[in-house]
Design a binder for these strands. Structure first.
Lengths: 284, 284
DNA sequence: TCCGGTCTTTCACTGGGTGAAAACCGAGCT
DNA sequence: AGCTCGGTTTTCACCCAGTGAAAGACCGGA
């Protein structure tokens, strides 16, 4: 009788030993804006799961409708998942409440309108209305961006809990243009200003030709849950003149959010952090 | 020594014996437009999983960001899931390509604009622009509806594969108003007309005061992948006059979809059906 | 204080999930 | 044709992640 060699079960990859659920979620997370369509092998590699496992989990996601396959056999996110995800209060819920106001804003200005929320130390664009001949801004609904450069980002950062601010300001902040602020002290000053004035201005800090004016949206509890902004050509722009319109829209949205209570006392609001303060803060 | 009673392991519910992944997905599916926020127990009941299991799976979904908790401890869909789901080609992808055209349509008409795709035997609204003082239509982005009543529905049904048409026409079709068609033969005739004319009209078949004119949007391969519609007051409406505008918008969107190829030969298109024809067709 | 509800944790058991390996498939090249 | 190469699917033992019952913690209302 040959002695059966106990398989040493090395961690197959840097990050493994994942639960089944984690693997399924990793498969979903493998999709990104630059790669919204993947083959099974790509899926397996990106999610760090073995090929057979990817195959099995993908089959289940497929059956449920979380994934779909193109005629060519490639995988992409399925409509069913989009349907369920549309129930996210901070996603479509927020969007629905805001849209009328965003459209008014667009009507008046014919410029780019953006709506964003903070997720951890970044921002996520929830809605965007792009004027046909407004400045080209390369943002995507559902896309992420840093907090320290854009108008919406500054608003969200200015009203973020202290520990989040500290954490973000502690990072090496990306510089997008010569005007991008990357010095923590400077930014701290700006944030104080944003809180005092009730709006933020980002002049050429993402692309030199664009200027954005943003204002905070408050939820039911009065906490800042999102931000709207107007993005215009950097020249031909007077921030102080634009601020009132943007602030008015923000207040309108805030009122709409506080009004119709969907079901529960809470509604749209920052999710309860996983742990307490700085330390844990969950993954990602 | 007491004989250990082998637990009979009855199927705990009507449908069980589910895989881990299926349970996680069932938790997500427990959320609906009417109940976008649930307690753990509700979640457990709706998803037909035991409470401890719901607790464990929910914890993982929470950690990943697929779910979030309100201060009150209730669960709702998380922004992270919304982010990933926004990569669905038939969801936001389609929406992004269509939005400029929908906005033009809105500019011109100031009425309700709807964009929908077919999912199985129903339709899902992907976008909606609601005129402030246009007819009140109670549709929700991400919401489902029957195919046989609305304008978009008729277009999608008219261009659906034969087996889907047969299946849908075989159902007991809901009647929403006195004008709703429910007779298969009548509908079949209407569908032929829709294909011939290139647009569909639904006059008071959902609510008596609304009339909608819809046109098909084709994808890269030439197959119909979505439909746009204009919903106006039933009186004061001349379908034949509205049809050209709607069709023009639909063609514009079709062209946009065929133009920028994102990555793969396929792009937006009907997902490959799970099995062959009528029989299997997956769940739900 | 007690009671009904929900949430969380513990515990021993077991079947769903696992990766390695091999078979399969189809497109492109010689 | 024959060969090769990437990707996909299936098989096969092994075993640990996941399981439900039950008990414990917690909370708000009576």
């Amino acid at each position: 009788m040959a002695v059966r060699q106990t398989p040493v079960r090395v961690q197959p990859d840097g990050a493994a030993g994942k639960s089944v659920t984690a693997k399924a979620l990793a498969l979903l997370a493998a999709f990104t804006p630059d790669a919204p369509e993947l083959t099974l092998s790509e899926l397996s590699r990106r999610a760090h799961v073995s090929l057979p496992t990817a195959h099995r989990r993908a089959a289940e996601l497929l059956e449920w409708g979380a994934l779909e396959r193109t005629p060519a056999g490639h995988y992409h996110i399925g409509l069913r998942l989009w349907e369920v995800a549309s129930l996210a209060p901070r996603g479509l819920g927020l969007r629905e409440a805001s849209l009328p106001f965003l459209e008014d804003l667009y009507e008046i200005t014919r410029e780019n309108i953006q709506l964003a929320v903070r997720e951890d130390g970044e921002l996520v664009f929830v809605e965007r209305i792009a004027g046909r001949n407004a400045v080209r801004v390369r943002t995507r609904v559902g896309g992420r961006f840093a907090l320290h450069a854009t108008g919406v980002g500054l608003v969200l950062l200015a009203h973020a809990p202290a520990d989040v601010q500290e954490r973000v300001l502690g990072w090496r902040l990306d510089r997008y243009t010569s005007k991008t602020m990357t010095d923590p002290a400077t930014i701290r000053e700006v944030l104080a200003n944003v809180r005092a004035r009730g709006y933020a201005v980002s002049d050429g800090q993402v692309t030199l030709d664009a200027l954005s004016v943003a204002a905070p949206i408050t939820g039911r509890t009065g906490a800042v849950v999102a931000a709207v902004s107007l993005v215009v050509h950097a020249d031909s722009a007077d921030p102080t003149a634009l601020a009132p319109v943007v602030r008015a829209a923000a207040r309108g949205i805030s009122r709409a959010l506080s009004g119709n209570r969907p079901r529960d006392s809470a509604g749209i609001g920052a999710p309860v952090p996983a742990s307490g303060t700085a330390a844990g803060e969950g993954l990602r």
